[in-house]
Amino acid sequence: MSTFDTIPKTKQEALVETLLRLADDRLILGHRISEWAGHGPELEEDLALANIALDMIGHASALYTYAAELEGKADEDHYAYFRDDIDFKNIALCELPRGDFAFTIARIFLFSTFSYFLYQKLIDIVEDEQFNGMLQKHFKEIKYHLRHSREWVLRLGDGTDESHQRAQDAFNEIWMYTGELFNLDEVDQVAIQKNLFVDTLDFREEWEKLVVDTLEEATLNVPDMEQYMFSGSRQGRHTEHLGRLLAEMQFLRRSYPDAEWK
């Protein structure tokens, strides 16, 4: 737990925390992917990356909107624009700089694979109708992100020598940030008790299998699973990158907070 956090007591508090954690991941990663707009490796892929970014930011926006309703905040922008980096609960994997196309694909693939299993399980247990409705709607898009990124992992891994090397470097570099996908803290535990979240370790093997199978099919080596893993982001202990990302994202809105910007 970070210094300022308290463990949610009521079901509603647990729900808000869960919504924010899911939303923060998606906003921050969507933001990173949006940096490709106009700079993609081919026109068709520029469109594809923009679609994925739009989906993720859209998911975040819907989740924030619901949290704002529950907490009586003005709107979704309250969470995106008026919180500091230590308040954001996204995992570090999402905030790392854009990187090259191989890094982008590796990150979308690892994250979408995780989201795929997570949403699948959540849809089964979440009783809150509004939350469940969102999960179902977003799940369809997550399946596409998984399909698109998986196909690209195969092409980069089993393409040219250069693409193979870049893909291998990307997975090696990013691997230490995958541990956080499966870290559960006390907030998660409360959410699990209240049927708002699931024990991610329950599907860790499935996740690993899909990742390992894909990497092998792509002729890539699976990075060392026992290596040091970064942790702490869910408690607000981020990398140095998030602060800069937020400085850019929030500056205009915070400079003129009383102006109408919607």
């Binding site: 026109l43 068709e44 892929e45 469109l47 594809a48 679609n51 399909r147 092409r155």
Partner: peptide
């Protein structure tokens, strides 16, 4: 433009079904 059939389908979706 697409390197193969699978990506042609995906590119078609991303381009013509926005």
């Amino acid at each position: 433009h697409a390197p193969d059939a699978e990506l042609a389908l995906q590119n078609a979706r991303d381009t013509y079904a926005r």
